[in-house]
Design a protein around this nucleic acid. Structure first.
Lengths: 337, 337
DNA sequence: TTGAAAGCGCTACCAA
DNA sequence: TTGGTAGCGCTTTCAA
């Protein structure tokens, strides 16, 4: 099982370099049709498989890209990964995946792992990745694209959802339903999406001349558990909200759990809107109203942009902000008069 | 950005081979402490990163394993992948992921892709992978482990759930609740898990002296849509079942959708049990009774076994069957008298 | 159109 | 304990 280019060459009675030329059939590398066929024939006969490690060493590439994911069991990511994989496999690039569990340590460790594997590019899909980690990547010179996370330093490429617009749509929807006591279960406020979604919420309330009650804003992060705790807090308020805009579907689901626990009815008593529109939101009862983000596209486009950066072609657009749209389901209803 | 071992050697005033010895600090390769420190110092100074491509070429490995997934958006898999990744990153192995979309063509294409990338091992997580595809892997000599799929040819290693026992528990549970008209929404009957779960269903009914009505068995595959269609069929029966054992949670969820469509109440009218106990099952209403499969462990153990095979250590157990357990929730209730 | 040869960066063997 | 060196399998330049 150790058939090399040399072996093929010997069998076909040609030089290894000729075999190489045949394999990479570059139209420029002229090989006589006759020899080409002979070589191809022996390749098939011997079942020769080019060794891409050797090839990569010579070419100084790895033919692979690395991707950092905070938590693959968060339903947001499989959809994104699917988009990435679809593009990477089109380009014959290996996709090396790493789940960081949101640990900065592991993030850094994996970045280094990727770096000395000489990945050709990096996809960083996490709202948590530290600026220092990004700096390390930057220094290495390996092209990278941030996914679902902007870069406050205003350097580098990214693909994100239109957080501000999405948040405004969500809150607008609640206002249109007659709600005025609208709370926000916020993401981490050291992350861009957390800030932007909060900002959108603020602006929209402002537009409607609704007073912003700071008690109505609870920072919860992005987990179900965070949403649960935040909702509990909101329910304990002397004047609880009639509607909630949650920073994402997972926190919205946590909030719904809390409401169930307290005997508060979703939609009838309190309306709730999520963000991301992950698959399961449609499956719960009542189905969750949410801001739809094109997750698959996010992955695909990020990979595509990365590919362009890898090939050094000029990028028309280094920052893609994906349009989001509101999907209205049963979890939101008109306020009771 | 092109610091090689040579460069380090020159700076430190030693031979490249010495630097190599320092890097792979094998206790056998004795290096004087003083030189070791000096080399380490220059490595840090120059920010040297070993090139694993070169290393791998020399060592004839790739330091990576490949994993085939049919559909990463199926909530079953992220959990499994998490287990795999956790183990692979412990071993400093890259995990190259590929989503096949259940297409045989892509399966084969990716296997070849993996093979000439010289992956050190392969994880095949799909009930659909063809025997021919497996044969191709077998021929290549690259170690592999099947995940969530047995091998009917009785060759090769695998990690699977105890399908038969799980199915029996599920059906037993329904029988204990007084049900006698129990249908089975079956998986594909050309897959092991499909067959084994059906067998378990059959045996348990037999044990309870319940006549097996062939109309109560509908093949649906593993998708939500399949479950939906199957349930529709069951509801059209002149004597519809009072309980359903679905081959997995996804089909169970599809079945529930169908029941909702037809105004049939889950649990009150028809009880339903799923299999796998994916995360979302607990979130839907009513929460889904299901056979819990340790998905994370499945991934971790498979990777661990693969690692052992890669190192050529004797495997104590080439076939792991994971115990499954029943998780009772609200989707099942006593039959109405 | 093809062959010869150098070399990608590393490891491991042999010698000193 | 260290240095020298061959070579992993491939690509690519130069010459023939």
């Amino acid at each position: 099982m150790k058939i090399t280019i040399k072996e093929v060459a010997k069998q076909a009675g040609v030089d290894p370099s000729t075999v190489s030329r045949v394999i990479n059939n570059d139209p420029k590398l002229s090989v006589r049709e006759q020899t080409r066929l002979r070589v191809l024939e022996t390749i098939r006969e011997l079942g020769y498989q080019p060794n891409s490690i050797a090839r990569n060493l010579r070419l100084n590439t790895s033919g692979a890209i690395g991707m950092l994911i905070p938590d693959i069991t968060n339903p947001l990511f499989p959809e994104v990964i699917k988009g990435v994989e679809s593009c990477s496999s089109e380009k014959d690039l290996g996709l090396i995946l790493c789940n960081t569990g949101d640990l900065h340590e592991k993030e850094l460790k994996m970045i280094r792992f990727f770096l000395n594997r000489r990945v050709d590019g990096l996809l960083l899909a996490s709202v948590h990745i530290r600026d220092e980690t990004i700096a390390e990547v930057e220094k290495s010179g390996v092209p990278y694209v941030l996914v679902n996370r902007g870069n406050r330093k205003d350097a580098g490429a990214y693909v994100v959802a239109d957080n501000a617009a999405g948040a405004k749509m969500a809150v607008r929807h609640l206002i249109d339903l007659g709600h005025r006591k609208i709370a926000h279960i916020a993401g981490f406020l050291y992350t861009d999406s957390g800030i932007e979604r909060l900002e959108g919420y603020r602006k929209e309330l402002n537009l409607a001349d609704i007073h912003l009650d700071s008690e109505y804003i609870v920072e919860a992060g992005y987990s179900e558990q965070g949403g649960y705790k935040a909702m509990k807090k909101l329910l304990l308020l002397p004047d609880p909200p009639t509607a909630v805009f949650a920073v994402n579907d997972l926190t919205a689901m946590g909030a719904i759990l809390a409401m169930n626990d307290q005997g508060v009815r979703v939609s009838e008593d309190i309306s709730i809107v999520g963000f991301d529109d992950i698959w399961v939101g449609e499956r719960i009862t009542p189905a969750l109203t949410s801001v739809k983000v094109p997750l698959y596209d996010m992955g695909y486009l990020a990979m595509n942009m990365l590919y362009q950066k890898m090939r050094g072609v000029p990028i028309e657009q280094e920052r893609i902000v994906l349009e989001s749209s509101l999907v209205v389901r049963r979890s939101t209803a008109a306020v009771k008069s």
